[in-house]
Design a protein around this nucleic acid. Structure first.
Lengths: 191, 191
DNA sequence: ACACTAGTTCACAGATCAGTATACCCAAGA
DNA sequence: TCTTGGGTATACTGATCTGTGAACTAGTGT
């Protein structure tokens, strides 16, 4: 993370407006004027809080990342069966993508911001590696064989389901089933 | 398809420049002036050929789609083993993504163009469903059981590998291996 | 009484954006 | 020879973009 979120009420409203507008309409297509207007704030305040549009983009992605991670963490903690827990992110994705129909915000951000030194790249990379690490930890905890390979494969399935989300295909349930099959196949037999 | 490509030399140079610039830097971030300049053409010529930036974007995606499809078709035709043929798009992806490191141009385009009535959406959807149909045909030809389910799963793996391409993770080889395992598992035993 | 902080208002700079207008050049075909 | 079409050159419109300057207001803590 490290992208410290603003503490002032105006700052929070700005990030909230940025979250919706950037994700729904695209980063480059949304101007700072529009965000200021939607958050009921002056453009001057926006720049006092974030300094530049790029930093606001970083705050937007960091906020979204944090929200998603806490959702996953909560769902993981609520799951009892260790084997089922491994595929929890896929079930979270089912809920998540009901209100987020425009695919992965981080992949989308990378599409618009080619510069690798842009903070968005690090945030996106961190998010994916966090998920991969989570898959590996959960797989190891469930006693799965080859947790490293399994984790990468689950990540690919997860991202594939997310990336094809804007398309008129139901890839989510199919990828979830395959993920569950992979986990069961590598898990030790039930005692 | 249906997006008829321009026949004049200037038109072809414009599309070529658009292909590189749009993919490398993003659609919204690249102006028509830059494309005209890179293709050694006047902006007037660009508008005479394509009418608007949106139509040029459509031509860019259609051209890219056509190029990729012919690459896949050639590789499929060159493969003898029916079972190996099913995973040919993954091997094509290995070559393709060496020079296309910014992920899927169609997913990226959808990220920037939220309007579902934009021609880019249909082109992207067509491309994905074409690939899914190809997977299903190849799976059926190889005698795989459940070619429909298998095709969707292969598509998810393919898109997952492509979507995670800009990230510092080697997901391509892992997804290729898993794809091959899936095909082998559903293929009839060798005689 | 004083200073500090968050926020407002409003004007403005400088650049870039998509798209148009006008006039011209030149080669091929009827 | 005359027309037509692809293309050039250049200037332009009107809108929008990110970002800044300067002065002002209101609350809060010391």
């Amino acid at each position: 993370m490290q992208e410290t979120q603003p503490v002032t009420p105006a700052g929070r409203r700005i990030v909230a407006a940025a979250e919706e507008l950037f994700y729904e309409r695209g980063i480059t297509a949304v101007g700072v004027d529009l965000i200021a207007q939607h958050s009921g704030v002056t453009k001057r305040t926006l720049y006092n809080q974030f300094g530049s549009k790029d930093h606001l983009v970083a705050a937007y992605l960091a906020e979204r990342d944090q929200r998603w991670r806490s959702m996953v963490r909560t769902a993981v903690d609520a799951c009892d069966d260790p084997v089922e827990t491994v595929t929890t992110p896929f079930r979270v994705l089912l809920t998540w993508s009901r209100t987020n129909t425009r695919g992965c915000a981080f992949i989308n951000a990378l599409a618009e911001l080619p510069d690798p030194s842009h903070p968005a790249h690090r945030i996106a990379a961190d998010q994916k590696s966090w998920l991969r690490d989570l898959f590996r930890e959960l797989a190891a905890a469930a006693g799965c064989s080859g947790p490293d390979t399994l984790a990468t494969r689950l990540l690919v399935l997860h991202e594939g389901a997310l990336a094809t989300r804007p398309l008129p295909l139901d890839t989510l349930s199919e990828s979830t089933e395959l993920a569950r099959a992979l986990v069961r196949a590598s898990a030790p037999p039930r005692g």
